[in-house]
Nucleic acid binder design. Structure first.
Length: 443
RNA sequence: GGAGAGGUGCCAGAGUGGUCGAAUGGGGCUCACUGCUAAUGAGUUGACCCGGGAAACUGGGUCCGAGGGUUCAAAUCCCUCCCUCUCCGCCA
């Protein structure tokens, strides 16, 4: 949620910034209006409550003075005020619901530096990185031999490390099954990434199923209920990302200034129904109902969000560089930004087999938007005041797409796939996965 | 899964219908005393919402696990849910 105080006091600037992401001026005016209404009704209600409180105290006093006549008079007065209170409370709550409904749907105020645009077409490519040429700001010329232009689902079957048919038998489409060296490589990726991050980030293994309230506090419910898996008997929900448990860890807490920033990393499975994209990318590892991901999450002081943001992005990139994958960094435009984010950088890896850029990470700064919703605050050591923290997170990284990119990028003419050097120690020394029979090498 | 006990402020812990935002102790902070530390004494010490004020501060409301109810009045009575602890059963 955005800060209503700021909206009241400085509407112009907020209007302008929110307009960049398509929020209409009217919806903001409506919110301001509804908020005014709420405050006026609540102050009337509170005044009436004060009156009843006073009367009730008088009743007690009258009884102590053994003046039951006076007591009765106060009771009568209080009773009739009570009837009025009922009505006012009702109105106040209705007004509040109305305001909250308007409030909840207002997305976060974008970073003034976020590129302005209306759709993903206008996302800005900040830089490219290629294992041979390093960084560049223009698209590097990269040629792929024919034997690299094989889709990972074919490679996976050729190497006998992916088994989509059996996975579908068990669970339906868009559930993966990794086998042998494939299963091990997935484990290697997780171990490698966690080992990279735990120098600064506390390793967490949170629950994979959370209560409804937890999903609500990160905004995944009620709006996106169709995208989540629910275990009905217990009303538990499968987490779509580790961001859900990690953000809720400090829910309703006041953190100590000295404890910030709190940096955490977690490897978890992620579950998504992908209801909105039925039929898209049903083949291979591009879009799955279940996948593993290593996440970075930070609670930071508002003044220090920038360095944290840079650090998360740097770490996510670092993993890709160490794996030797060709990727690009996108600065998401205001129209493509997620509702809670102020600024987001996406990392996309190039997969030559499917000839696509695959989003493998999304690094976001949420300002105090999530913290306000989840009520996560800290006491500032300097002025002793309580403020909301800033939350930031980044996937580092989503494995199936990285897995796909590794298969497609490191396939050789003989159909074998070279394992990235950094993973070899985690693979028990295995540095290459060989096809089970001849292979389907092109060229 | 069965039986029982319990959830109160930063912590411990009192409080069974009105004078309770809440005793008492500990901790924290401030001041005094002290060469330093320790000890001692005095004071102070919650969050949220709305209003007034430049600010210090101040008026009102809410909060005693959560949500409902009874009542003029609820930490206190009733209902539902959540959580914790103990014992038994079961289990990786």
């Amino acid at each position: 949620m955005i800060d209503l105080h700021t909206l009241r006091e400085n509407p112009k600037e907020i209007f302008e910034l929110l307009e960049r992401r398509g929020v209409s001026r009217d919806s903001l005016e409506d919110l301001v209006q509804a908020d005014r209404q709420v405050r006026s009704l609540f102050s009337k209600r509170d005044a009436l409550r004060a009156k009843i409180n006073d009367l009730s105290k008088e009743v007690g006093k009258a009884y102590r003075d053994k003046n039951s006549e006076l007591a009765q008079a106060h009771i009568d007065a209080s009773k009739s005020a009570g009837v009025e209170l009922e009505l006012l409370s009702q109105q106040a709550l209705e007004a509040e619901h109305k305001r909250n409904a308007l409030w909840m749907v207002i997305p976060n105020i974008p970073d003034p530096k976020a590129p302005i645009g209306s759709s993903e077409q206008e996302n800005l490519v900040v830089r490219y990185w290629h294992p041979e040429n390093g960084y560049s700001t223009v698209l590097p010329e990269v040629e792929y031999s024919g034997y690299k232009k094989v889709a990972h689902w074919d490679i996976g079957i050729e190497l006998d490390i992916l088994d989509f048919a059996r996975a579908a038998k068990l669970s339906g489409s868009m559930f993966p099954m990794f086998k042998g060296s494939g299963a091990r490589m997935l484990r290697a990726l997780t171990s490698f990434a966690l080992d990279q991050h735990t120098d600064e980030f506390l390793e967490i293994r949170p629950p994979s199923f959370v209560r409804r309230e937890t999903m609500i506090s990160t905004g995944h419910l009620p709006k996106f209920a169709d995208d989540a898996y629910q275990i009905e008997a217990d009303d538990l929900w499968a987490i779509p990302t580790a961001e859900v448990p990690l953000t809720s860890m400090a829910r309703d807490e006041i953190l100590e200034d000295g404890d910030l920033p709190i940096k955490m990393t977690a490897a978890t499975p992620c579950y998504r129904r992908e209801a909105g994209s039925a039929g898209r990318d049903t083949r291979g590892l591009l879009r799955l109902h279940e996948f593993d991901k290593v996440e970075l999450m930070v609670y930071a002081k508002p003044d220090h969000y920038r360095e944290t943001f840079d650090e998360i992005l740097r770490r996510a990139e670092d993993i890709l560089q160490k794996l030797g994958l060709y990727y690009r960094v996108l600065d998401l435009c205001t129209g493509d930004l997620g509702a809670s984010a102020r600024r987001t950088f996406d990392l996309e890896v190039f997969a030559p087999g499917v000839e696509r850029w695959l989003e493998v990470s999304s690094v976001s700064w949420f300002g105090d938007y999530q913290a306000r919703r989840a009520n996560i605050r800290y006491r500032n050591a300097i002025d002793q005041q309580i403020y909301h923290v800033h939350t930031l997170n980044g996937s580092a990284l989503a494995w199936p797409r990285v897995f796909a990119a590794i298969l497609e990028n490191f396939r050789d003419y003989d159909g074998s796939v070279e394992i990235p050097k950094v993973l070899v120690p985690y693979m028990g020394g295995l540095d290459r996965i060989l096809p089970i029979s001849g292979g389907v090498a092109k060229d």
